[in-house]
Design a protein around this nucleic acid. Structure first.
Lengths: 151, 151
DNA sequence: TAATGTTTAATTGTGCGCAATTAAATTTCT
DNA sequence: AGAAATTTAATTGCGCACAATTAAACATTA
């Protein structure tokens, strides 16, 4: 299969930021994370720390590996992040006695208690967005679909 | 306007990663940037550096402020990034003689020359995605729309 | 069982992102 | 003109992201 050469006019169009998929994705992601900031600051949380808690509120205990598989983050990101969360007494870290390679992350009482205050965040953010529900769900589903393509 | 309380079952649903907008956005953005990596590494570029060049190929000269307005990045991010690009002789940095507060970023020959190799990246990436064109454009347009909401 | 290969976290080093502060230049107001 | 407010970059400090390497634990296989 031979690549068709593009005219330079076509290239000019393709090189514009707004015609690409990646830039709007990159920028919207950062702006949306920024919209979370005031809500998360009340809980002294960063966005990736909030994601870790979302998973732990659902599963109680997860290994670093499992957290990484779910969040698509590696130990280079998670290890220092989890150590900071341990210092704040939100999570615990211990080796799995049945497989000493794995580190099990558990919820401490303070981390479990945060759920009460955090459980309103999704609604608050949805309200802040002021986006029709159908549009919200369509975009979310397309992004989840893209995500499966990218793995 | 009074907030309607949610059932705890509803809250459980809302707190799941895949039901939120932000996580798929955050994860897809990182994974898509990662898909650019092999293409950008051939040019010794990072993704945000590539974005700066996309703008300069179009406009030849832009101030740090204008770059920041376009990319939604501030000087805390751009200043060190542009200094690294200056060291590699891709861009030039000089004060605007008509307004000494502004720093004008221009293209150096090596930076202009990169365009020849980079102009194929958008097509290569689109091919790599293997996504129907209509789906690509719909997602891109929805993200651009979300982006205007978030500004 | 001993050697080989794989899996899992941790570590190291680099480059963003961004809030907060500082300092200089310019604009606006009185 | 002079004072006050605004704009613009740079700096500082912190927390991700992630590639690459290391080391330990476990699994597989000869």
């Amino acid at each position: 299969m031979t690549a068709t050469p593009l005219s330079s006019a076509d290239q000019n169009l393709l090189l514009k930021l707004e015609n690409q998929l990646c830039f709007p994705l990159y920028a919207a992601s950062r702006m949306l994370t920024k919209a979370y900031l005031p809500l998360l600051q009340e809980l002294d949380l960063t966005y990736p720390q909030y994601l870790v808690l979302l998973l732990l509120w659902e599963h109680e205990e997860l290994t670093v590996k499992e957290l990484g598989d779910n969040l698509l983050l590696d130990s280079g990101t998670l290890t220092p992040l989890l150590k900071r969360m341990e210092q704040k007494q939100w999570v615990s870290r211990r080796r799995d006695p049945r497989d000493e390679r794995s580190v099990i992350i558990g919820l401490q009482p303070a981390g479990a208690a945060l759920r009460q205050q955090a459980c309103r965040i999704p609604e608050q953010l949805f309200a802040k967005l002021g986006m029709p529900q159908a549009e919200f769900e369509a975009l979310r589903d397309q992004l989840n679909h893209l995500l499966t393509r990218l793995q």
